[in-house]
Design a protein around this nucleic acid. Structure first.
Lengths: 195, 195
DNA sequence: GTCTATACCGCGATAGAC
DNA sequence: GTCTATCGCGGTATAGAC
């Protein structure tokens, strides 16, 4: 146990990241100023530079952390020997994980253009790695004769786009619960791969 | 026949809109300056205001024109009495239309946040109107007992997200032709609605 | 660790000459 | 119809006091 801290040090950094995330999601990276972020946190603009080298790092770090958590959380799921069970697990996991982090997801998809080249390359690699995991499930199912999929790469793209789309319209207060939505989407996913 | 024009009048306006569209698609509305647009066209920044009242109108007009063309072109397609034929027609139309206008599509999805409220409302109404047309096809198919779809509204959202996703990865120079891609997606769409 | 003050730049938009 | 010049503002980022 080290000495008691005055709170500000450990608290301000996360608060800045949270404010930046919310503002980037709502207005877009390019439209948000460092002054706005500072005002949200209750500090002066200059003070932000004690916690981040620049605005670009704020964006890159939140995208990297989001994708790292996505990959880690997915990797921690129980193994499914049955391809059909694995596909259902992926479908439900994807919807739930993304719905619970709509700001991060929105930023990760919309702000790719605003990453500097080197940062973009790293983020893209993480995204492709996630897509590859779905593709592997489809590949296994096809090899086992359970799925009828002409092109597993395209099918993975198509399914991920479909599932991520839930984020654009789903609201907790709407007529359907998330688990009901999961059921409906899983029904479509299952049928679409000929299962 | 009116008097011969000096070319600049009729030509500069469209060139400005084209340059704005390309730059907005590439860098995002908020990140593009009027000076950049002017430089692309080869005029001074001040000259843009002879052709548009402001930057916001540049964005709104291109989104409105894009969606108007989408609705008009779709409405001009031949009627399909058979719901299955109608769904195939929608699928192939959507992929082809959107692939041919990737800049406009990108802007119409990514820059909604940058529309002023009144403009946003008008654009949203047009987008919903397009979604409703797919929903009607699904409704007809379900009524005829051809489709097995638990919720036609969700299915319409899911299918449009899936089809629009083609734009994020398809390249003319890739391993698959667009008509091959259409075939693969139509196969998934058809199966997903239980046809 | 946060502040004020500020450097330096580029923004959208307008005015008025030509 | 396009130009130059400019207004007023706000951008990112830094310097130096406390």
């Amino acid at each position: 146990m080290a000495r008691k801290k005055n709170s500000s040090a450990e608290v301000t950094g996360p608060r800045i990241r949270a404010a930046a995330q919310e503002l980037f999601a709502r207005h877009g990276y390019a439209a948000v100023s460092m002054r706005q972020i500072a005002a949200e946190v209750g500090v002066q603009a200059g003070a932000l530079y004690l916690y981040t080298p620049d605005k670009q790092s704020l964006l890159f770090d939140m995208m990297r952390d989001h994708l790292a958590e996505l990959l880690d959380t997915h990797a921690a799921l129980p193994e499914c020997a049955d391809p059909m069970a694995a596909l259902e697990q992926f479908t439900r996991f994807h919807i739930r994980f993304h719905n619970a982090r709509s700001d991060s997801v929105f930023i990760a998809y919309m702000e790719l253009r605003n990453l500097e080249r080197a940062n973009f390359t790293r983020i893209e690699a993480m995204r492709r790695s996630y897509e590859a995991r779905l593709q592997e499930v489809l590949e296994r199912g096809r090899a086992a004769g359970v799925f009828d999929v002409p092109d597993t790469k395209l099918a993975a793209f198509a399914l991920i786009a479909m599932l991520t789309g839930v984020n654009t319209w789903f609201r907790e207060t709407g007529r359907l619960s998330l688990s009901h939505v999961e059921d409906i989407y899983w029904d479509m996913v299952r049928k679409s791969v000929g299962g």
